[in-house]
Computed example of a mutant assay.
Amino acid sequence: MAEEVRSIKDLRAAYYANTHAIDKRCQKHPTVLMIRTKNPCTGNVLEFCPECGQELINRDIAKAGAEAEAQIRNFKSYAVFERESIVSPKIAKETIGSYEIHTEQDAEAVNFVKRFATDYFKGRYEGNVILQGPPGVGKSHLALGMAKSLNEGFQKIGEKKSVVYMPVSELFMRMKEAFNLKGAKWEERATIKFLQDVDFLVLDDLGKESNVGNSIREGSSWAQSVLYRLLEGRTKTIITTNYAGEQLKQLYEPSLLDRILAGKDNVFRFKTDTESRRRI
Score class of each variant (00 low, 15 high):
residue 2 A to W: 05
residue 3 E to Y: 09
residue 3 E to C: 03
residue 7 S to F: 12
residue 8 I to Q: 10
residue 10 D to W: 07
residue 13 A to F: 04
residue 15 Y to L: 14
residue 21 A to H: 08
residue 22 I to A: 11
residue 24 K to L: 13
residue 30 P to Y: 04
residue 38 K to I: 15
residue 39 N to F: 03
residue 44 N to A: 13
residue 47 E to Y: 03
residue 52 C to E: 13
residue 61 I to L: 11
residue 67 E to N: 13
residue 68 A to P: 00
residue 71 Q to F: 04
residue 72 I to Q: 07
residue 75 F to S: 01
residue 77 S to M: 06
residue 77 S to Q: 04
residue 82 E to C: 04
residue 85 S to W: 08
residue 90 K to M: 06
residue 90 K to V: 06
residue 90 K to H: 09
residue 90 K to S: 11
residue 91 I to K: 08
residue 94 E to L: 10
residue 97 G to T: 03
residue 106 D to L: 12
residue 108 E to V: 01
residue 110 V to Y: 10
residue 112 F to M: 06
residue 113 V to L: 13
residue 114 K to W: 07
residue 116 F to W: 13
residue 120 Y to D: 05
residue 126 E to C: 01
residue 127 G to E: 05
residue 137 V to T: 15
residue 141 H to D: 09
residue 142 L to H: 01
residue 144 L to S: 12
residue 145 G to V: 14
residue 145 G to W: 04
residue 147 A to T: 05
residue 154 F to A: 02
residue 155 Q to V: 00
residue 155 Q to S: 04
residue 156 K to H: 02
residue 167 P to S: 04
residue 178 A to V: 09
residue 180 N to K: 12
residue 182 K to C: 03
residue 183 G to K: 02
residue 195 L to E: 08
residue 196 Q to A: 08
residue 196 Q to H: 04
residue 200 F to K: 05
residue 205 D to M: 10
residue 207 G to S: 01
residue 215 S to H: 06
residue 215 S to V: 14
residue 220 S to P: 06
residue 227 L to K: 09
residue 236 K to P: 00
residue 243 Y to C: 06
residue 245 G to T: 13
residue 257 L to V: 02
residue 257 L to P: 05
residue 259 R to F: 12
residue 260 I to D: 06
residue 263 G to I: 08
residue 264 K to T: 11
residue 266 N to H: 11
residue 268 F to Q: 07
residue 268 F to H: 12
residue 270 F to I: 02
residue 271 K to S: 15
residue 274 T to H: 12
residue 278 R to I: 06
